[in-house]
Computed example of a mutant assay.
Amino acid sequence: MHIDIITCLPRLIESPFADSILKRAQAKGLVTVNIIDLRQYATDKHKSVDDYAYGGGAGMVLMIEPIYRCITELKAQRNYDDIIYMSPDGELLKQSIVNELSLKGNLIFLCGHYKGVDERVREHLITREISIGDYVLSGGELAAAVVADAVIRLIPGVLSDETSALTDSFQDNLIAPPVYSRPAVFQGWKVPEILLSGHEARISQWKHEKSLERTLKRRPDLLKE
Rank of each mutant, 00 (worst) to 15 (best):
C70I: 08
I71Y: 04
T72E: 15
T72Y: 14
E73K: 11
E73N: 13
L74Y: 06
K75R: 10
A76E: 05
Q77W: 06
R78E: 06
R78T: 04
R78V: 03
N79E: 03
D81W: 07
I83D: 01
I83N: 02
I84M: 00
Y85V: 00
Y85K: 00
M86Y: 02
P88S: 15
D89Y: 05
G90Q: 02
E91N: 13
L92Y: 11
L92M: 15
K94I: 10
K94E: 14
S96R: 12
V98D: 02
N99R: 04
E100P: 10
L101H: 01
G105N: 10
G105K: 09
N106W: 13
F109E: 02
C111V: 14
G112T: 07
G112V: 11
H113Y: 11
Y114T: 07
K115I: 15
V117H: 02
D118T: 12
R120V: 10
V121S: 03
R122F: 05
R122M: 08
R122H: 03
I126D: 00
I126Y: 01
R128Y: 10
E129P: 04
E129H: 08
E129I: 05
E129D: 12
I130P: 00
S131L: 01
I132E: 01
S138E: 03
G140N: 06
L142S: 15
A145D: 07
V146R: 08
V147C: 14
D149V: 12
I152Y: 05
L154H: 08
I155W: 03
G157T: 15
G157S: 06
G157F: 12
D161I: 08
A165R: 01
A165V: 01
A165I: 00
D168L: 06
F170G: 12
Q171E: 10
N173V: 08
L174K: 01
V179D: 02
S181W: 03
P183W: 08
P183F: 01
A184N: 13
V185K: 15
V185Q: 14
F186Y: 06
F186V: 12
W189E: 09
W189H: 13
W189F: 07
